[in-house]
Amino acid sequence: MFEARLVNSSTFRKVLDAIKDLLNEASFDCSENGIQLQAMDSSHVSLVSLNLKSDGFDKFRCDRNLTMGMNLTSLGKVFKCSGADDTVTMKAQDYADTVTFMFESKKQDKISDYEMKLMNLDQEHLGIPDTEFSCIIKMPSIEFARIIRDLSQFGESIVISCTKEGVKFSAQGDIGTGNVKLAQTHNFDKEEESVTIDLQEPVALTFACQYLNSFTKATPLSNQVKLSMCENVPLVVEYQIPELGHLRFYLAPKIEE
């Protein structure tokens, strides 16, 4: 028996919104530790990794490890039926081929349930090695989304270069060039507005705008985003989901020919 209850169903809805551009379907691996998802986009260029801890749920029970393959368009339809303040309870029997989502309104005056068919997905799992990153940038997630959106107008790629002075985002194309520099700023009163850089050595890497833009769909999940970079290693774009876990995206740098 699997049962997970989340008072803020909107958090799960935000997770779905964040990954549905990249993934059509995905397997949710449920265990006593929580719910994990790891999947590559259809072009096998980027990797999505979601971890929702069991103790972040308001109720969590998983008697037997369970992999639930879901069509994310269908799952999106189910969550469209929920209210913004609803509580969601997900339930599945052992070896079931369906999962049930029950939505309860705050006042408990409306309860709806939707049963969705599960899929058998043959998904590859990748082993992600521990990496000593050259630099780790933490910045407001809205600012990151804005910069990626703005610079995407100039070219198909963005260079992210990081030194002890700050981080620079650059793009160039037919119409010209764009550069955005951010200095480290520490706002002790408003931690979420800070830009912090943990630098081992300067690094400059090039990434495809298309994927960076997709990653920023996770902006509503978190005030801050963490970018981890190292030469010849995929970029990690991480959004912490308060009290529940994290959503990470991995993207390989473009290599100069």
Partner: peptide, 14 residues
Amino acid sequence: ENPQQPIVNYFKNL
């Protein structure tokens, strides 16, 4: 534009 490297080139298939 340089080709985008597949992520499987970096992480091991388990």
